[in-house]
């Protein structure tokens, strides 16, 4: 199985309240292990998945948000955030975690692969993907 496809994970749900975000992350990690080109898109309430300083102590849920920060180590190269969704919730890029990425072979690195994009770009990126997983 040598095929490499462009996988886009479209995350539309808040991190807690339902299990979609958490179980989506599990698929992301497996897809990366299959050496696919993995990108993530956060839209609608999905933008909350990347917010800084999540504290789940009061709701008795595991705080899985630190995992997002490790995605660069799993060779996830792009994490896009829909600008309109962010703005509609009174958030800015400063409210979101930063995710570093480094290519171990070439030592090329990017300080933060989280990128806020406009709706036109969102549509373009989804259209360019071979597979869109929607969670």
């Amino acid at each position: 199985m040598s095929d490499t496809k462009n996988f886009m994970f479209l995350n539309r749900r808040a991190p807690y309240g339902t299990i979609y975000a958490w179980e989506s992350l599990e698929v992301v990690l497996i897809a990366a292990a299959f050496e696919q080109n993995v990108s993530l898109m956060f839209a609608d309430d999905g933008v909350y998945e990347l917010t800084k300083g999540q504290d789940t102590a009061g709701i008795g849920m595991k705080n899985f948000s630190p995992t997002y920060r490790t995605l660069g180590d799993y060779e996830v190269r792009h994490m896009y955030v829909d600008k309109a969704s962010l703005e509609a919730r009174g958030l800015t890029a400063d409210d979101l975690v930063q995710v570093e990425w480094e290519d171990w072979e070439t030592e090329e690195s990017v300080d933060n692969i989280v990128e806020v994009v406009d709706s036109e770009k969102v549509a373009e990126l989804l259209a360019e993907s071979d597979v869109v997983f929607s969670f």
């Binding site: 199985m1 095929d3 496809k5 996988f7 599990e26 698929v27 497996i30 897809a31 292990a33 299959f34 696919q36 597979v131 869109v132 997983f133 929607s134």
Partner: peptide, 20 residues
Amino acid sequence: SGLGQLVEAAIQSERLVVFG
């Protein structure tokens, strides 16, 4: 079986159709 089966299905198929 494992999630690898989902990823493999996405690689091997021309279309992955998600219902939910």
